[in-house]
């Protein structure tokens, strides 16, 4: 007997199509008279937060969602998490419209706001965890297994009985991550998870996110201003500015979209003459270190190095891509907000 073969087209886990959201903002005139006038005849100004945003995500992606302040990042995240109803457009997450089936939807997602704690301030962490188990109605055996795994992965065992208010920022963020994953969500939204963390904690958080994404297949949507987070984690970056998506793709394609240039960093001996030439520009000079910018399409890298080595007494040199901050800054600037 042959079974009928059913071909399933993979349906993206998250579909966003033509999302539009505007806010009505009350205009506040200056002065007492103006204030009175605003009270009697309030005037509203329409601010567009999203102007037709579209993208889709497959299950198991780790995506960076970046953009300058006020670009529409948090509006998008709010629409995806069911907090906000957009004016028009389609959002579907795991087959559900978030704001229409809020309760069923949020049971399957986890949300971490870097600046706001979800733990109960006066209680030991473990009690917050237990309460979350109740809120999400997680069956006990499953809860215990997930919790122990998270405690192990994030090394929380020492912190469980400490009241949250006594935790350091880095410790608290590890607890926050665990708290948002206790109900084994399919999708995790992270809003600035590494803000204010020291280098060690940042690395710990990043490592954990990588493991989470690779081993558990959790889809991660990361909004951040920390480009190191993006560089370390994200295979795909969506850049939004002024309510529109400017770029969507890998980090290297984002780079290529802005510029092909390379940076040559040269450390010179003390009495050396400075480098000079027509086919590069000096970006910065710090002491004996010169940073030069050139276009590899026009200038041959080996040739350039050879000329500079002949011209000056070079102690050390290396070639780099321009830092991601530089790329992003140019993109933001080009967006002309």
């Amino acid at each position: 007997m042959t079974l009928p073969v059913v071909y399933c087209l993979p349906v993206p886990q998250i579909i966003v199509e033509n999302l539009v959201k505007t806010y009505q903002v009350a205009e506040r005139p200056i002065g007492v008279l103006g204030g009175l006038k605003a009270l009697a005849w309030p005037r509203y100004k329409t601010v567009t937060a999203l102007e037709g945003v579209s993208f889709s995500l497959e299950s198991g992606e780790l995506v960076g969602y970046i953009g300058p302040n006020g670009a529409g990042k948090s509006t998008t995240v709010k629409a995806l998490t069911g907090i906000l109803v957009p004016d028009s457009g389609r959002v579907e997450v795991m087959g559900r419209i978030p704001w229409k089936e809020r309760v069923a939807h949020v049971a399957r997602i986890g949300v971490v706001f870097g600046q706001r704690s979800q733990l109960w301030w006066d209680l030991p962490t473990i009690e917050s965890f237990d309460l979350l188990k109740e809120i999400y109605k997680t069956p006990t055996p499953k809860y215990v297994q997930t919790r122990d795994e998270l405690v192990d992965r994030l090394s929380l065992s020492e912190l469980l009985n400490v009241p949250v208010r006594q935790l350091s920022l880095g410790q608290r963020m590890r607890c926050e991550l665990a708290a948002s994953l206790l109900h084994s969500p399919d999708i995790l939204f992270l809003d600035e998870p590494t803000i204010g963390l020291d280098a060690v904690s940042k690395l710990a958080v990043r490592d954990f996110m990588r493991v989470l994404n690779r081993e558990r297949g959790v889809t991660v949507i990361l909004t951040t201003h920390d480009m190191d987070d993006i560089e370390a984690l994200c295979s795909r970056v969506i850049l939004i500015a002024g309510g529109k998506i400017l770029s969507d793709g890998s980090l290297s394609s984002l780079r290529a979209q802005v510029t092909q240039e390379r940076w040559l960093i040269v450390d010179l001996e003390e009495q050396s003459a400075p480098p000079c030439g027509q086919d590069f520009e000096i970006v910065s000079q710090q002491g004996d270190r010169f940073t030069l910018r050139y276009q590899p399409a026009q200038t041959d890298t080996a040739g350039l190095i050879g000329r500079i080595a002949a011209q000056c007494s070079v102690r050390d040199l290396r070639v780099e891509e321009p830092p991601i901050e530089e790329i992003i800054a140019r993109l933001y600037g080009g967006a002309g907000k």
Partner: peptide
């Protein structure tokens, strides 16, 4: 904004 957090609870 704490209310947004409550909205993310089922």
């Amino acid at each position: 904004g704490e209310f947004d957090r409550l909205l993310t609870r089922p």
